[in-house]
Design a protein around this nucleic acid. Structure first.
Length: 1029
RNA sequence: GGGCGAUUAGCUCAGUCGGUUAGAGCGCUUCUCUGAUAAGGAAGAGGUCGGUGGUUCGAAUCCACCAUCGCCCA
């Protein structure tokens, strides 16, 4: 039996991967890898839960691949890394999917359908594509426990979330306030921002400028002044509460007493405006005015009702620089009201009509009252000007009704109170890329506003707050507490069942009923560090052991999603971040940079890539071709490219080993390196292990991968290429060295491309059942002198081949000598590895010259990096002084270890070896290739001996081609017959041993083989007959 | 409208946190090597490093503004 399984003729990675998967299943490798690390220090990863109500796409593959690699790496490094899967189950997207399925589109219809039935549909819908997810997850080799995942809809999970909310309640961090939301008066529901962005339409709206006469002078404002105020929503003027100005902005008074921002005078009033006074906005603050409509008196709003207030949102871009503020109808307005202590007064009913407080307008739909309100203003002399304005305004995406912005009661978490703690927690996170910390996340946290927690929806974790009209309120922190308070034990804490639970009033009043809201789904998923274990009700130790996470990874869009909710909840509860390192991924686009979308038809379906190129190719593309946070422009072919460039090259090197190891029946034994090439490749291997380990420790898969790729390239295109003969001859040291290199590469590669790595490992080593059960390799000894020597000699070869190319002389034609310009360490290096250079360049000898003038001349250049900081402004003078030096003199001086003097600006300076750089300059009349101070020239004269040797090599080349077309195996021996041109035959006779050895010929006849079609060598015919011996 | 990020060869991407000839792979042209390889090697064409200013002895790199694209938020 051969030592290794022979490789298939044409490898199919997708098929191979399926076989490896089969083996993993049989051996239960993932669980085995955990079992072997029991008791080891934990490495904690948190899975950001996807929602399984749609098919997974390529962006999910991207995230899952990056989630996978580091826990695999850390497991091999000796850590215990349990990865619990998770599913996000609640939320509006699920509800909308079900609504579409049921053909209904508003809340009223949901309630008619029945909340219990509706939520039951949601529960089904949320796992509709679970099987697709599970299949893809397994197929791409993402190791995560999907047998026992956390699910945000589970009773235990919800109880942990309730616990967290109870904690917040006890810390007084949970409160009910108002929130201004886009609201559809027809459907009677608030819309999410996602829905709003779907419904922008260009419409014509009124644009009115209104006079607000000052009636309580203050600061610079006096009786007779009129503030000019602009609005596009006249219907909100009836509940004007105050006006806002920018305290820093300059305002003016015109001759007519009109007051507005200086920058807008011309646009609002015109060229004829006469400015009589200038002042800052701050000087206007505190003055009182007469509101445009009399229905709601200033006192209702509080002390500052109908006065001028300072604000930071006032713009001098449009309007008048004085902003009408109606607390209930705008985000900025509402915030200003909260800051200044103004009461929220909303005289508009839920159906969009005015209530009784607006006298004559009661019952009118607000938007339709605009024209009458404008006329009303005009008739009282309060209108300055009315125009029409085209702009984009949001409409309800379902019914087309213009949306109103309304202040509605809503539950909040006081995150803004802990802003400093959030920033401190953020500071402790190791972000990748770095700029997220102070950029996207940092800026977001600095502007933190309270977390709007509640949603007026159905499918979600119910907000566990019970209260009655008397204001008695409890926040229930566990099911046991609920039972204790209400006597009810819930099977399912979802709506509507939880809505039926009543808690008797502690004072004998009305029973407490639950508030109707459910909570934001981000609070669900952000609670997973404890809720996934049902902590603190059980598994408290498990939670503590698995908190915080060492590593999390998601798309960059999660900055304000999961990254934030995890950070916020753990800061609120534990005053620390729940993750140490966070890798944020960019988005994927097609190869032209366009977003992938169904309508463009440019979506890359994961299964297409996997079926065509395999999961490892997909993984390698994502992990190792570029830095992940800027996103990927790709299509299926792009993935194929990375396959060819790396995996196929590795596979062929491995195939080469197996082929000759089997031919020579090579034992799997360790043999010490036998020559410099062996020692070199092992040193390069050690360097590779060092770098890859370091990069992976720093969550830099890209450079780790590229380092492996560079090594495999060296291995294939230098080590193997230069060692071929030793493999043909069965040299045990060569096999042992290559095998060690390949096996170590499979270990380095295991976290990247787990399938191919395991396949190769299994066939070459197999001392463990899987490469994923091995310990991460130790670097081993480096020989940096040898690495330098090899780099130098490869440079010599490159230069020599370039010179051959210039001379149009084939490598097959031997030459007498190459002349190498090199000195010191370079020369020693080349001498040490001279045989490699002779063979690669096909020359009989290397001749060294160390003096530049023998082959070329030197040029001296300043080392700017060293001299720049020293000379600063004088750098230009230094450069010309250096240029004026005699290069030969400098070369001698620097070789001798002495310095060179220059004079700059009348001062003498000494320059040493680090300050100057010597380079070869081209010299006419020589076939010479140069790089820095290193150059190679060729002796081009040929004699008959060399020419015949060249012919012999041509003949060998022709015979090899004949072997191949005769379908012989590489190890087959032959009987060779040659005929044809006499000069060719003479060359073959002269080099008979060489020809026989190279072509594995046991016998050779050079007396004619005329029956076959001749090949031409330099125009001469050669007949070749090969017969298997 | 605000915040964050990106823009480098025909394409996909590097560029060591300011150093003087800006690199790699793919693709293209010419040549070459082969007992593993859809391989490998050499040469060539292809760049005003998105634009404009600025800082500096020196800018792809730092700053400002602008343009385009992406993401997040309004």
């Amino acid at each position: 039996m051969p030592p290794h399984r022979p490789l298939p003729e044409n490898v199919s990675f997708p098929e191979l991967e399926e076989k490896v998967l089969e083996r993993w299943r049989e051996l239960d490798v993932y669980n085995e890898s955990l079992k072997r690390r029991e008791g080891a220090p934990p490495y904690v990863f948190y899975e950001g839960p996807p929602t399984a109500n749609g098919k997974p796409g390529s962006h999910h593959v991207l995230a899952r691949v990056f989630k996978d690699i580091f826990p695999r790496f850390k497991t091999m490094r000796g850590f215990y890394s349990y990865r619990k899967g998770g599913w996000d189950c609640h939320g509006l997207p699920v509800e909308i999917a079900v609504q579409q399925q049921l053909g209904i589109d508003n809340k009223k219809q949901i309630e008619e359908y029945g909340i219990a039935e509706f939520n039951a549909k949601c529960r089904e819908s949320v796992f509709e594509y679970l099987e697709d997810w599970t299949k893809l997850t397994e197929r791409i080799g993402y190791w995560v426990d999907l047998d026992d995942p956390y699910r945000t809809l589970d009773t235990d999970y919800i109880e942990s979330v309730w616990w967290a909310l109870g904690q917040l309640w006890q810390k007084d961090l949970l409160y009910e306030g108002f929130k201004v939301v886009p609201y559809c008066p027809k459907d009677g529901t608030a819309l999410s921002s996602h829905e709003v962005s779907q419904g922008y339409e260009d419409v014509e709206d009124p644009s009115v400028f209104v006079r607000y006469p000052i009636n309580q002078p203050h600061g610079v404002l006096r009786e007779g002044d009129e503030l000019l105020v602009w609005t596009t929503t006249p219907w909100t003027l009836v509940s004007n509460a105050a006006v806002a100005v920018d305290p820093e902005l300059t305002y003016v008074r015109t001759a007519n007493g009109e007051v507005l921002a200086e920058a807008l005078v011309t646009r609002v009033i015109g060229e004829e405006a006469q400015v009589v006074d200038r002042f800052k906005g701050a000087d206007m603050v505190g003055a009182g005015y007469e509101p445009p409509f009399p229905y709601i008196p200033a006192s209702e709003y509080g002390e500052k009702g109908h006065t001028v207030l300072p604000a930071d949102f006032v713009s001098a871009e449009d309007g008048t620089g004085i902003v009408h503020t109606a607390i209930a109808f705008g985000e900025d307005d509402f915030r200003l009201g909260a800051e200044q202590g103004l009461a929220v007064i909303n005289p508009v009913r839920a159906d969009g009509t005015y209530d009784e407080r607006i006298g004559p307008y009661e019952g009118r739909f607000v938007k339709e009252a605009d024209d009458d309100l404008i006329e009303d203003l005009r008739s009282r002399g309060r209108l300055f000007r009315a125009e029409k304005l085209f702009h984009a305004y949001p409409h309800c995406w379902r019914c087309g009704t213009p949306l109103l912005y309304y202040a509605k009661p809503s539950w909040y978490i006081k995150t803004s109170q802990l802003r400093d703690r959030l920033l401190a927690a953020n500071e402790s996170v190791d972000w990748h890329p770095e700029h997220i910390k102070s950029g996207r996340m940092g800026r977001w946290l600095e502007n933190n506003v309270d977390w709007a927690l509640s949603r007026e929806r159905y499918w979600g974790t119910p907000l566990p707050i019970w209260r009655n009209e008397a204001g008695e309120t409890v926040c229930v922190g566990s099911f046991a507490e609920l039972k204790e308070l209400s006597g009810v034990e819930l099977d399912d804490p979802h709506r509507p069942f939880v809505d039926d639970v009543e808690i008797p009033s502690p004072t004998g009043g009305e029973p407490l009923r639950r508030v109707p809201e459910v909570i934001d789904v981000w609070f669900d998923s952000g609670s997973m560090p404890f809720a996934q274990w049902h902590a603190p009700f059980e598994n408290q130790e498990k939670f503590e052991e698995q908190f915080p996470a060492h590593y999390i990874c998601e798309g960059i869009d999660q900055t304000r999603g999961w990254f934030y909710s995890l950070l916020a909840i753990s800061t609120l509860l534990f005053d620390r971040s729940s993750y140490e390192t966070c890798l944020s991924l960019g988005h994927i686009a097609d190869e032209t940079g366009k977003k992938m979308s169904k309508s463009l038809g440019n979506i890359v379906v994961p299964w297409d890539v996997i079926d065509r190129h395999g999961a490892d190719a997909f993984r390698w593309y994502f992990l190792a071709t570029k830095l992940p946070w800027e996103g990927y422009n790709f299509n299926t072919d792009t993935v194929g490219e990375s396959l060819r460039q790396f995996l196929l090259q590795l596979w062929n090197t491995y195939g080469f080993y197996v082929l000759y190891a089997n031919v020579n029946d090579v034992a799997r034994e360790d043999v010490p390196p036998a020559n410099d090439l062996d020692r070199w490749v092992l040193s390069r291997l050690a360097a590779t292990v060092e770098t890859v380990t370091d990069r992976l420790e720093h969550y830099d898969a890209t450079r780790a991968g590229q380092t492996i790729q560079a090594f495999v390239d060296d291995l294939s295109n230098w080590y193997v290429r230069r060692s071929r003969r030793r493999f043909w001859d069965g040299d045990p040291a060569a096999f042992a060295t290559l095998r060690r290199a390949l096996v170590t590469v499979t270990q380095l590669l295991a976290p990247f491309t787990p399938f191919i790595a395991d396949e190769i490992y299994d066939n070459l080593d197999g001392s463990e059942p899987s490469v994923h059960l091995t310990d991460w390799p130790e670097p081993g000894e480096r020989d940096e002198a040898l690495e330098f020597a090899m780099a130098t000699v490869r440079e010599t070869v490159r230069l020599g081949l370039a010179a051959r190319g210039q001379a149009k002389l084939k490598v097959r034609q031997p030459l007498r000598a190459a002349v190498v310009v090199a000195s010191g360490a370079e020369r020693e290096a080349i001498e040490r590895l001279q045989d490699l250079a002779l063979d690669e360049l096909n020359v009989k000898a290397l001749r060294y010259v160390s003096q530049a003038d023998e082959l070329g001349s030197y040029e001296v250049k300043p080392n700017y990096r060293a001299l720049g900081p020293r000379f600063g402004k004088h750098m230009k003078l230094v450069a010309s002084a250096v240029a004026a030096l005699d290069p030969a003199h400098v070369a001698t001086a620097l070789r001798g270890g002495t310095t060179v003097a220059i004079n700059v600006d009348g001062h003498d300076h000494e320059l040493g070896a680090d300050d100057l750089m010597l380079a070869m300059s081209p010299l006419e009349g020589y076939q010479l290739e140069r790089e820095g101070s290193h150059a190679v020239a060729l002796e081009l004269e040929l004699d008959d001996e060399l020419r015949r040797e060249g012919l012999a090599r041509e003949i060998v080349h022709a015979i090899q081609n004949a072997r191949k077309s005769a379908g012989l195996q590489v190890e087959d021996r032959i009987h060779l017959g040659l005929g044809g041109d006499e000069e060719l035959l003479a060359a073959a006779r002269e080099h008979e041993e060489y020809v026989k050895r190279e072509t594995l010929a046991l016998s050779a006849e050079f007396n004619g083989a005329g029956a076959v079609e001749p090949v031409k060598i330099e125009g001469r015919p050669l007949h070749i007959v090969v017969e298997r011996a």
